[in-house]
Amino acid sequence: MKIKKAVITAAGPGQHHLPLQTLVSPNGDTKTAIAFLLDEIFASGMESAAIVIAPNCERDFSNAVGEHLPKVTFIEQSDPLGYGHAVLCAREFAGADRILLMLGDHLYLTQSDESCLGQFLAVANQVEGSISAVQPTHESKLPIYGTVGGQRVSGSNGLYEVSTVLEKPTPTVAEQELIIPGLRSGNYLCFFGMHVINPAVMEHLAESDSTPLLLSPSLNATAQNENYLACEIEGIRFNIGEPHGLLRAQLGMALAGESRDEVMASIIELIAMTR
């Protein structure tokens, strides 16, 4: 069944301002990071979106979402009890439907004709159950991401059947449990910041009493109990919460758009002038 609802988490402690940052898009428009995400979400056929925010942030976010405001619901996470808890806050919004889950501090740049979200939903809408967007990632980045292990779905391109999900694994564990045949050595499938989850994941989150409540253990439980897939995306993700993350995102967008030559010239000039 087609996915119609999206949830964006934007309540992380110390990070709730990140989605409000302003960037210039490849075609020269200026808008907030959250607006970029919503543009992509609604362009992909979503009918509604919920943003999980920290207390007292609704006004800022209302201003930031711009034209999408009528289709957006704000859900307040009263205490910062973990990413899984933020997702769980949207349980009522999700109801019995599969929902698209995105991160408020991530931006994407496609490397194909289709947007990153478009690529993901094209696959997600074809399958049942939960599915996550993933990307082969070097092991040196493992301390940052959730990572999946599993097998390639035979006959498919870039689609995997997930058997294990671990949050920020060490390479030691990754090598033992998360090796995917066909990937280059030292590379693992790490989350790309987009998931489609079904109510069973919400249910598992609700049953869990760990603090902080993370999403990965529930996804791992899903992988043990039902068919859970991962889909490889051709694109670049920018975590604007990292040091220089916003700058990297802006540069990535600028270099992918009409101002590429101008930006490159500026970069070279800066390099020449600084040491």
Partner: peptide, 19 residues
Amino acid sequence: VRGNQWMFRMGHPADHPLR
């Protein structure tokens, strides 16, 4: 042995995956 291999690949401090 799986779990040992990565240690022979890592050659730069910036790539160190342990914390």
